Simulated assay, not measured.
Amino acid sequence: MSIKLGIIGGGVMGEALLSRLVAQQVYRSDEVLVSDPQPHRRSVLSQQYGVQVTADNRAVAFATDVLLLAVKPQVFDALTVEIAQTVACVTDSRIPVVVSILAGVTVSKLESAFPGWPVIRAMPNTPATVGAGISAIAAGKHVQPQHLEQAQQILQAVGEVVEVPESMMDAVTGLSGSGPGYVAILIEALTDGGVYAGLPRAVAAKLALQTVLGTALLLQESGIHPAELKDRVTSPGGTTIAGIAELENAGFRSALIEAVKAAACRSKELGNS
């Protein structure tokens, strides 16, 4: 059986994608080969998902469908040196699409490492590990519609997918990539507010978490604008408008906007370093 999906890197995000791709039968276990330097990780992935494993990254590069890069960005240069000879040996009829989830590794850098290959840069976020993520993808110059379809199929296994020009990837990083951190602080602050108002911490934490989760789900399923939902729960002279006034006084909106801007700028800096 030929290897259709090769995954270089069996860490958290690599396993998140692998687990759902196998569970959803996008790929059969015997069609997948995963490389990882750690014997323990290889053993876990093999036993849990029934996939083939190896310590040799070069073997994975012979995948016929998709080559998924899921290693740390810091090892990208060493990885490309390691597999360069293998990449050069792959014939035109067998070239897979390269899907990279390496933060800060640009399309041009990917195309230099995989000359003539279709490459797609992707930015998933951490909720992808529970199947509730959002990924942005940017295509290289050799990418055809079928390659985009393959990448979308891979990433839809862990959530939603949007296609953007690569020039927007730093903004994506600042919003959805870093966003879970902002939301975590929001939930923590709501919990602390509940404790301050007299609630036991466990109760406050449950109320805060479910309020954020439920509100997001309501907005998603109803399709209404967040401002409309805000207006619906804000009665004249009521509790919600009193709280919103304090948020406005504290610069809550501006703080979030500035957080996204700062993270996007930092992403750009890291990409240029």
Rank of each mutant, 00 (worst) to 15 (best):
Thr239Tyr: 10
Thr239Ala: 13
Thr239Gly: 09
Thr240Cys: 03
Thr240Met: 03
Thr240Lys: 08
Thr240Gly: 04
Thr240Pro: 00
Ile241Val: 11
Ile241Asn: 04
Ile241Gln: 06
Ala242Arg: 14
Ala242Glu: 04
Ala242Asn: 09
Ala242Trp: 08
Gly243Ser: 10
Gly243Phe: 11
Gly243Trp: 11
Gly243Tyr: 10
Ile244Asp: 04
Ile244Asn: 03
Ala245Thr: 14
Ala245His: 09
Glu246Gln: 06
Glu246Leu: 05
Glu246Arg: 04
Glu246Pro: 00
Leu247Arg: 11
Leu247His: 13
Glu248Thr: 03
Asn249Trp: 03
Asn249Thr: 11
Asn249Lys: 07
Asn249Ile: 10
Ala250Leu: 12
Gly251Cys: 09
Gly251Asn: 08
Gly251Phe: 08
Phe252Asn: 04
Phe252Thr: 05
Phe252Val: 04
Arg253Phe: 13
Ser254Trp: 00
Ala255Glu: 12
Ala255Trp: 06
Ala255Met: 10
Leu256Thr: 15
Leu256Lys: 11
Ile257Pro: 01
Glu258Ser: 01
Glu258Asn: 00
Glu258Phe: 01
Ala259Glu: 08
Ala259Phe: 13
Val260Pro: 02
Lys261Ser: 13
Lys261Pro: 03
Ala262Gly: 03
Ala262His: 04
Ala263Leu: 09
Ala263Ile: 07
Ala263Arg: 01
Ala263Ser: 07
Cys265Glu: 15
Cys265Phe: 15
Cys265Gly: 14
Cys265Asp: 15
Cys265Arg: 15
Cys265Ala: 15
Arg266Lys: 13
Arg266Cys: 09
Arg266Tyr: 06
Ser267His: 01
Ser267Val: 00
Lys268Gln: 15
Lys268Thr: 10
Lys268Met: 14
Glu269Met: 12
Glu269Trp: 11
Glu269Tyr: 12
Glu269Thr: 11
Leu270Ser: 02
Leu270Cys: 00
